[in-house]
Design a protein around this nucleic acid. Structure first.
Lengths: 136, 136
DNA sequence: CCTTTTGACTTTATTTATGAAAGGAGTGAA
DNA sequence: TTCACTCCTTTCATAAATAAAGTCAAAAGG
C-alpha cells in the first residue's frame, strides 16, 4: 500500500510542505509528474490530511503553553464542553482520554493573569490538574 | 507589528499552506507579490516556523495515541532521556513540564502489544501514568 | 507650503513550475 | 507471445512565482 518512496515523500513534506513537485521529485529520485501523482494518491487515500504551517505562538503573544487534565464530577460533560467552546482563543487541542481524567486540554495563554482567570472559570465546570510546559 | 491582514494570512496558511500566492492574495485582498512579501516577512521574523503536513497516523498503522506522564525517581533524567531517543518511531512530542510529573510524553503505537512492550522498557527508567486518547 | 523620504502596494515582464497527454518499460496472467 | 496494467518519463501549453520598475499616500524637514 505504502512503499518506501511514499514514506520518503511524507518525511520531506513534513519537513517542508511548500517544496515544488520538481524539488520533491529530486529528493526522492522521481520526476515532477511522477511525484505529483503519488502525492495526489496520498491525498485521496487520506494519508495526507492537509497542509499547514507551524506558528510560533510566543511571537503571537501566547508565551504560556499548558496541559490541563480535566476531571468532571458529573457524568454529564456538556457544561465543560460548552464552556471551552467559548474559550477558543486559548485552545490548542481537547483530547478525550481514558486514564487519569476525562479530558486532556492543551491550551496557550498570553499571561498568568489570563491563565488564572481561565482556571477560575473552568473550575465552575470541572476539576483540573495543571501542567505548564517548560520545554519541548 | 502584526496587523489584521497578517493574521488572516496565518489563518489561511494554517488551513492550507499550499495555496498559491495568487490564491492567498485573493483571500486577503492583495496581489501575489504583495502577499508574497508579507509571507517572507513572517518567515524572517520567525512567526512562521515552517510548512508541514497533517498525516493520518492511523492510516500509517499507528492506531493508538497516548499521553504518558513521566515521573522519574532520580534527579538525573539522563536514563529516561537516553531511552526515549531509542524509541523515535513511537514518539510525537516530549514536553518537560512543571506540575504532576517531570515530562509529558506524547506517543503513537500500532498495537497494544507494542505499547505494552514500550511501557515495560520505560518502567526501567521512570514511573509513568498512561492516558489513551479516545477522541480529539 | 512644497519637497523629500519611506513604506507598502501594483503592474509588467521574465523565469520557473504545474499538469495534461502521449509514449515506453517492466510485470503478471492467459 | 500477447494483452492488460501500473508506473514512470518526456513534451508542451498554461499558470504561478519573482525581480524590477513605477504608483501612491503618509510623515518629516526645510
Amino acid at each position: 500500500m505504502l512503499d518506501h518512496t511514499d514514506k520518503r515523500i511524507l518525511e520531506e513534506l513534513s519537513r517542508n510542505s511548500r517544496l515544488t513537485m520538481k524539488e520533491l521529485g529530486e529528493k526522492v529520485h522521481l520526476t515532477g509528474p511522477a511525484v505529483s501523482a503519488r502525492v495526489a494518491k496520498l491525498e485521496d487515500s487520506g494519508v495526507i490530511e492537509g497542509y499547514t504551517i507551524k506558528v510560533n505562538q510566543a511571537k503571537l503573544g501566547y508565551a504560556i503553553h499548558t496541559f490541563i487534565t480535566i476531571i468532571t464530577e458529573s457524568i454529564f460533560h456538556q457544561s465543560y464542553l460548552s464552556f471551552i467552546k467559548t474559550q477558543e482563543r486559548y485552545l490548542i487541542n481537547n483530547y478525550k482520554i481514558s486514564g487519569d481524567g476525562c479530558y486532556l486540554l492543551e491550551c496557550k495563554f498570553p499571561s498568568n493573569e489570563e491563565l488564572n482567570e481561565f482556571l477560575k472559570e473552568l473550575n465552575e465546570h470541572a476539576n483540573y490538574k495543571l501542567s505548564i510546559v517548560i520545554e519541548k
